[in-house]
Design a protein around this nucleic acid. Structure first.
Lengths: 342, 342
DNA sequence: TTGAAAGCGCTAACAC
DNA sequence: GTGTTAGCGCTTTCAA
């Protein structure tokens, strides 16, 4: 050791192994042009010293961090976990590490998190979830290769999008109900986010296409279970009670499930329910909701590809990739009961 | 601009504002000893250039990052969200930012994540969840001020722990059932983690203390809903069927709920259920489980205090802080039905 | 109050 | 193959 104080540096390693700094650096990055003897010596010194390279120093000279920043919309809404999984596994292969931050664990902290990422000079940025493109966000996308996952609200010049096809998914859901023989099909809709709007529009279009324009019945909610419960009660208390409900997502679907229970309606006997996202909520066997799987893993995987490409070529034009969702039929849907047919 | 290439540096700012680098640096950290004129000039230049300080360079000379690394046990298990919330809000106040990583989004990647944090030279480390102290973990705790949140499996020399009191919580849960008049109270237990063991032991002790030693009935599970379902079925199919079940956590409790439903048992009429954690699962009105609230916010808050103290004084001896959990009575518990009393 | 200069720990030419 | 050297962008004495 030189100073004896603080963490060991590449210098200490070099001294101990009796080589030069650059030789150590070469070993560190696995250069082939190092003799085995020296390499061993260096490795030994590294181990003995418990040396760990200083990322800041490396970043400074290499001008890259090998870190990608992931900004999450809301940690409480776990639909994205599979997607991160798809992202992370392949990121590893590319030698990248991801660090996450929750954009609004504390409101307006998305700005702060974004600044942290920018200051860190992360190699890339992944925005996960339905976030509105605030000033801070667009500023960040201007400086960092960025891909958006899940949201459809972004139309930013150099920003790619990886998501799933809501049109297809919503149609799958509604058609499933129509095909089962339902006619009075209600919808619990979401907020202003593009995905909510698309799902709602497709719901309406699909009913129309099936000649059921008169049966369209929509209640909005705030995407919480509680809000969806209220919306569900309104829907199911109507004079012409729907025999089926398509909910904008799984959480909302559980809210509607509560509403049905509250009103003494049995699912799926009295009312069929379809959710969206195939979150683990819908997979709970106690709920066992028919839902739309959003191919999260593929979406995450694709996000990584888009990000790598954008890092390579920051100025290429935006790409939007939509994975194909699939219908998952579970226990919350069935044909309408004979007596409710008319 | 000097080079015209790459991001603007402090040098560019200095040039543009016609001052020296160090003056800019002073402004950056809000030093009072700068004339207003120059300060304005610098601020103006910063804004015009879109300058952002390079964290790597700053870290290198300041020898601190103002970042704390949070390693999550499992992103899928959302009990910690509130706790991060408690952590994050106060971290902000201290000028710290947190970055998260999931330890095992990919197995053995906890080592990788930890290395990333070490290489980043984060100011502190927070380990959230029931993770076993692997070699990589203890190595990391040796170098980084560390606090563990939620787990009770750590007895590492310089590592603090913030958690809740499982003894108290489990006793609250079991006593609640006893007080309701239940005698045959089963338990769906967890894995090898200390918290699981404690909860189980307290369950047994409490039954004994109530003179119900003969009624002790335990089934283990793997902490998934599916596993708990199986355990629940075994428990509820027993000759002397329990009239109440204490589950090791909310997820397990939902599994038992499924088991009850499967066996045609009504909750809480035929069987009462208590979970643990007060996750949003138990708060879903469709489930509405009686459970134990683990004071997550306080735990998170306290974790931050412990961390700050340890950063200040890295060699003080370990501190363990246990928050007091509380019982949340919801809809899954009731007195036993008269006919099942004996 | 401001500026000059010496690092922080590492990588990357470039010599040898 | 291996060592030398000049930065990377910032903070921080120390003078002025």
């Amino acid at each position: 050791m030189t100073g004896g104080h603080g963490e060991p540096t590449i210098r200490d390693v070099a001294e101990r192994a009796d080589v030069s700094k650059s030789l150590v650096s070469l070993v560190l990055r696995g250069s082939p042009s190092v003799s085995d003897v020296k390499r061993e010596a260096v490795l030994k010194a590294i181990k003995e010293l418990g040396y760990r390279p200083n990322a800041a120093a490396r970043t400074l000279s290499e001008r890259r961090t090998r870190v990608v920043g992931i900004m999450l919309d809301d940690l409480r809404n776990p639909w994205y976990v599979d997607c991160l999984d798809g992202l992370n596994s392949v990121l590893h292969a590319g030698g990248l590490t991801m660090v996450l931050g929750d954009g609004r664990l504390d409101r307006r902290s998305d700005q702060r998190l974004l600044h942290t990422f920018m200051d860190m000079r992360v190699d890339g940025l992944v925005l996960v979830g339905t976030m509105t493109p605030s000033g801070a966000v667009s500023e960040a996308t201007l400086r960092l290769p960025t891909v958006v996952v899940g949201s459809r609200d972004f139309k930013l010049p150099r920003v790619d999008v990886s998501a799933q096809d809501d049109r297809l998914g919503a149609e799958l859901a509604v058609r499933h109900l129509v095909d089962l023989g339902h006619r009075r099909i209600g919808h619990v809709a979401g907020n202003q986010a593009a995905v909510s709007k698309i799902r709602r529009r497709v719901y309406e279009d699909t009913l129309r296409a099936a000649g059921l324009a008169d049966e369209i019945a929509v209640q909005k909610c705030d995407l919480t279970e509680e809000g969806a419960y209220t919306a569900g009660v309104r829907l199911l208390r109507a004079e012409r009670r729907p025999t089926a409900v398509f909910a904008v997502n799984d959480v909302a679907c559980v809210g509607v499930l509560s509403a049905a229970a509250e009103l003494g309606l049995s699912v799926p006997r009295d009312v069929s329910l379809v959710g969206y996202d195939n979150t683990y909520l819908s997979r709970l066997r106690y709920l066992w909701l028919t839902t739309v799987d959003i191919a999260s893993h593929e979406v995450g995987h694709r996000a990584r590809e888009l990000l790598m490409q954008r890092i390579d070529d920051p100025i290429r034009s935006s790409v939007e990739y939509l994975a194909a969702p699939t219908l998952i039929v579970r226990g919350s849907t069935a044909p309408p009961a004979p007596n409710s047919r008319i």
